[in-house]
Amino acid sequence: MFQLIRYILLDIVRTRFLLFYTALLLLSSIGMFQLDADTGKVLLSLMNIVLIVVPLISVVFSTIHFYNSYEFIELMLSQPIDRRLIFWAEFVATALSLVLAFLVGVGLPLVFYGGAVGGSMLLFSGSMLTVAFVSLAFLSSVLTRDKARAIGLALAFWLYFTLIYDAFVLWVVYQFSDYPLETATLVLVSLNPVDLARILMMLQLDISALMGYSGAFFKLFFGTATGAWFSSVLLVVWSFLPVVIATRIFQRKDL
């Protein structure tokens, strides 16, 4: 397993895309710290990067990487290695490299400018969000044989969770505003990793004005600590559930 991960990591590093991604994150986080002295505001701006850019890059990069590794996977499958092991090595290596890029790109400036304490949730939820979208990318990769279709599906996941889902929740809340919607919103939020990550960060930053309906309710219902635990656990589930399903499909896939 470790040998396989090492070979895949070497391959990923060689494409240089990851270095580009790290540099991009570094530049934008340093830039934001330079522009504003208020750590709270900077964290808020970084949060938007984490919620939009990180999932997008993760999901697209992972899908492309998976298809570029098809030869490697084929070669390994004709060797005496467990199928699941090959698949998980690919997943772990991809997720690990993207999480590392994120931690270096956002974490280093955060530590340097002294925002690390307030930003710990930002780093945690950003990492988990990365893993969740790598996981979704692997699911879309095993669902179809065609690279273009898989990338399309991966982008659809991203679009759905970052934009469409929010609109849907808003619509539900608006339509049924005459009814008590607390529990329903709670369930709806749990079904979206991006929402979970946002609430997690907001609970720590304590920006009630920006928390929105679901966030405010979250805090009311759970209090900060329990709310954070609840959403953290759900976020971890989100990170691994798609790839577990994907493994089951990959087990039975013809190559």
Binding site: S69, F72, E74, L75, S78, Q79, P80, I81, R83
Partner: peptide, 18 residues
């Protein structure tokens, strides 16, 4: 998967990590 230790395979079109 362990039985594949006994197999040597030469594919029709060899595709390898570029």
């Amino acid at each position: 998967w362990r039985y594949r230790e006994k197999l040597g395979y030469m594919p029709q079109i060899g595709r390898y990590p570029g």
